[in-house]
């Protein structure tokens, strides 16, 4: 796993990909901090959470090549025929992408220090927001990695990842658009009402933005942590299965 991790992490910085992602992220982060800071005392935890939109748009660039490139250049033949488990290949790649993503948040430490030098801050609240963003990123990377497993083309992988990321992130906003039917008399009508209202509750709660927002309020939300960790686990598992499946088809 460490061999794959080292190679993939390094690859982000031997190609321009890593630099572009970091530069773009730092630009928006810095801009946002500057605007909020000059307006008054900024809340770094809030800034962190607000960056989830930028993260969503940059994520496909981080994950698009993760699996698809290997397959296109036939390097997967070396990886799969090496005496390593498929899961360690997948985890190595996942953590490499995750490390690049984590680096995106490095400047917020400096921001927090700058703010702390002026007003008193709640460090715990900052750490919670950071945890929330890392979990969100982990989940988006896992999804992107799985999509990258499905195709040989990084471009298709990137576009598909972007669409799905936007969907899962802002799912909660769609909840209000769905009108739940009410006052049905028939048995099936009542069941339909239940199904629709359950669905609305589901997309309202399951949207990533809704889940990650809780971390901004300096509360440690166990259910949200469990939610993101299980998303990561499911998509890492699916990635391993899709590599496995390719051998049998």
């Amino acid at each position: 796993m460490t061999a794959i991790f080292k190679r993939e992490f390094k690859a982000y910085f031997t190609t321009p990909v890593g630099y572009i992602v970091l530069a773009a992220f730092y630009f928006f982060l810095g801009l946002y901090f500057y605007i909020v800071y000059s307006a008054g005392s900024p809340q770094i935890p809030v800034i962190n959470i607000q960056m989830s939109t930028v993260a969503t748009f940059l994520m496909p660039i981080i994950t698009m090549r993760l699996m698809s490139e290997d397959r296109r250049q036939k390097i997967d033949q070396a990886l799969i025929t090496a005496p390593v488990k498929l899961s360690s290949i997948v985890f190595g790649k996942f953590f490499a992408a995750f490390a690049v993503y984590a680096l995106c948040f490095a400047p917020t430490v400096i921001f927090e220090i700058i703010v702390a030098s002026k007003v008193s801050v709640n460090v715990l609240s900052y750490l919670y927001s950071l945890l929330g963003m890392l979990l969100l990123g982990g989940a988006l990377i896992a999804i992107g990695m799985f999509i990258s497993c499905l195709t040989e083309s990084p471009a298709i992988s990137a576009i598909l990842t972007l669409v799905i990321n936007i969907l899962v992130l802002y799912m909660s906003n769609f909840a209000s658009m769905i009108s739940v039917p009410e006052g049905s008399e028939t048995f099936f009508g009542k069941i339909w009402e239940k199904i629709v209202s359950a669905f609305v509750v589901f997309i309202e709660k399951a949207g990533f933005i809704a889940a990650v927002s809780d971390f901004a309020d300096s509360v440690f939300s166990v259910s949200d942590v469990v939610y993101f960790v299980s998303i990561i686990a499911v998509f890492v598992f699916l990635s391993v299965r899709s590599l496995e499946k390719r051998r049998w088809s």
Binding site: R7, A11, T14, T15, Q73, K74, I75, Q77, A78, T81
Partner: peptide, 13 residues
Amino acid sequence: GYLPEIPPLYTDM
């Protein structure tokens, strides 16, 4: 040790 038809190389290394 396996040498496939297309050598599996990371060309950026």
